[in-house]
């Protein structure tokens, strides 16, 4: 059977490519996505994850029955930063998938929508939480309750995507962003992500404790010594992720 989710690791960047039938993440694809997340989670070489889709759209929706494996939990457990390359329709489960990324780069033709409520169901892959964290409570409610589509320009304005590019530039821009991140300290990237995402569910004081503990833990890594040495010697650092 043809695979719906391909993973390739090259120079610290793990690329997850969706090859979905009719741009829909069906149950089989959902299972493959969980497996992909699992394999990346166990690969210490990976500093950055990219999710993109080979189809006409990023993803127009997906299976949501109770038996569908929860790929949102699997992806949320990934420590390295995730970049999503978005184009075409980013709808329903597809929109929820995009929101699990840390940096979203969208082609100008991207269209976001949450159609679940209109179809008499709820987002079940984190969308009610991740959307509100991204665009605020009011806009999240408006989008989820009304099902209104928003285009890339508005998505950029409200902070749903970090940048917007011409369709033919999407791939290059995402690759460039991934390579830029891969040059930074891999452990630092993971810890910065952890401090921001996990800290946002804590009181400020607990969050600051978390940040400090991770900060001090980083002091024991080779990467941090390399970072400081490179700064003092005015050269480009070379990190091992240790």
């Amino acid at each position: 059977m043809k695979k719906s989710v391909l993973v390739q690791v090259r120079r610290r960047v793990a690329t997850v490519e969706l090859r979905l039938k009719e741009n829909v993440l069906d149950t089989a694809a959902a299972r493959e996505l969980c497996d992909a997340a699992e394999s990346i989670a166990h690969d210490d070489r990976v500093a950055v994850v990219v999710i993109r889709s080979a189809g006409k759209s990023f993803c127009r929706g997906g299976a949501y029955a109770a038996g569908t494996p929860n790929w949102a939990l699997a992806l949320r457990k990934l420590e390295p930063p995730i970049i999503a390359a978005l184009h075409g329709d980013v709808a329903d489960e597809g929109a929820e998938l995009a929101l699990l990324a840390d940096i979203r780069i969208a082609s100008r033709n991207t269209r976001f929508s949450f159609g679940q409520v209109g179809a008499g169901r709820l987002p079940r892959f984190g969308g009610t939480q991740t959307l509100a964290l991204q665009v605020g409570r009011m806009r999240a409610l408006e989008m989820i309750l009304s099902g209104r589509s928003i285009l890339a320009a508005e998505a950029e304005r409200v902070g749903l995507v970090s940048s917007r590019v011409a369709p033919r530039e999407l791939e290059a821009r995402v690759r460039e962003q991934a390579e830029e991140l891969a040059k930074r300290g891999p452990v630092a990237l993971r810890y910065a992500k952890e401090a921001i995402l996990n800290g946002s569910a804590m009181t400020l004081r607990q969050g600051i404790r978390l940040e400090q503990d991770l900060y001090v833990l980083l002091q024991t890594t080779d990467d941090r010594n390399e970072g400081i040495a490179s700064f003092i010697e005015r050269r480009i650092p070379s990190f091992d992720g240790r």
Partner: peptide
Amino acid sequence: LGMIPGVAGTQ
């Protein structure tokens, strides 16, 4: 530089 912000910036 292989570090994270340490003056509460991540929070």
